[in-house]
Amino acid sequence: MDVTVKIRNLSVWYGQQKALETVSITVPKGSVYAILGPSGCGKSTLLRTVNKLILLRDGAKVEGNVEVFGVDVYNSNSLSDEVLAKVGMVFQTPNPFPHLSIYDNVAIGPKLRGQAKGKELDKLVRWALEKSGLWDEVKDRLSRPASELSGGQQQRLCIARALAIKPSLLLMDEPTANLDPLNAAKIEELIKELSGEITIMLVTHDADQARRLASSGALLFLGKVVCEGPIDSIINGSYCDLLQNLVSEHLTTQTSKTKSKEIKKRG
């Protein structure tokens, strides 16, 4: 099995607080890999360790190994930039740069990396917008500001922005969480299409979405991996039951009152 991302014994702290504890996962190449779990369990943190975005947070400390395309990104700085240039990211809230045009939002990645210019860049922008299913909707107003687009369109623009750097790995942090069902369905369709070509790591708290899209994944709870494997082995039966079991197990071992209150709310 070809492996895109291999994480071993990864722990992450924000200051004194431990956000991830000895996490180990293996993401196979050319598939959709789901990272599941309740809110606040460290899904987004885990995703952000792959492209080192985690280091932007104040006081973040990373320990362990994160291998992307066979390169340990925290221990080989010269190679890691090269490898991370192949990693794109889509965020939970659509975040196109509001002051840039639709065209410039897509072109910014290749421009910054000096990958293309002129006619070639035009072609690349068109390709990315077609790929994200936005081309027909925006082809006549490429120079308009991105802020004029609707929420769903903005998210597809962000996908186009990430695709324009021709990534081999796409990180998606709950990309449909802030969209209506119709737009969410469009994005899911897009993920299905892309999944044959590139590897996608998808953070979601929606078990049905994970089942629809992913072939394998991991379930996180309180910063730890509870189980990892084919998606059906993780979500057998109701996801809700699964979480409830997790919570009750946790409650019997947990003594801190404040913590358990927090989790009851989540359950």
């Binding site: 740069f97 002051h99 910014i108 990396r113 962000c158």
Partner: peptide, 24 residues
């Protein structure tokens, strides 16, 4: 912060990132 993260994920650092943020 989400714009800073987006810029970083696109490979923009230092001067390039500042250029976009100043535009914002």
């Amino acid at each position: 912060f989400t714009y800073v993260e987006a810029l970083h994920s696109l490979g923009a650092k230092g001067f390039e990132r500042a250029g976009v943020i100043l535009g914002l």
